[in-house]
Amino acid sequence: MGKMTLEELRKLREAQKSEISKRDTAGKDITIFVGMGTCGIAAGAKTTFDTLIKAVDANGLSDKVVVKQTGCMGLCYVEPTVEVIAPGMPQTIYGKVDSATAEEIVKKHLVEHTLVEGHIYDRPAIDIVKK
């Protein structure tokens, strides 16, 4: 693979966008946050993030899902942590999310609308929740 230019990147993206606009969608209403503080990074959150975006794309959910990074969610002991906000599902923070679990979250939580047992943790720690 040779070096891509910014112009080539722009064209690829525009081709994608015109493909997306053909579909009838009601906008993005699912948000996924990946904790990327020191604790998250140390526990492999970058791999989790990479797997999540691939899985979202592979399941055809790109036009429904926003993937964001955040700092530490206050659950350093179960990093990498992933928070999922999706309509019709409880707002959930998953912990110990390795690549396999990340794929499971997309498949179960976002597609089948069931929780991924064994990885459910609490809301962020009290000291970082905005009052």
């Binding site: 693979m1 891509m4 990147l9 993206r13 994608q16 975006i53």
Partner: peptide, 28 residues
């Protein structure tokens, strides 16, 4: 800023994958 200008907001899985592809191509 130039990546955001080319692919838009980096919260969309497809935009993220394209941006990654671009960054990987720079390493070659």
């Amino acid at each position: 800023s130039e990546i955001l200008d080319a692919v838009g907001d980096l919260t969309d899985a497809q935009a993220l994958l394209l941006a990654k592809q671009y960054l990987e191509s720079l390493e070659t």
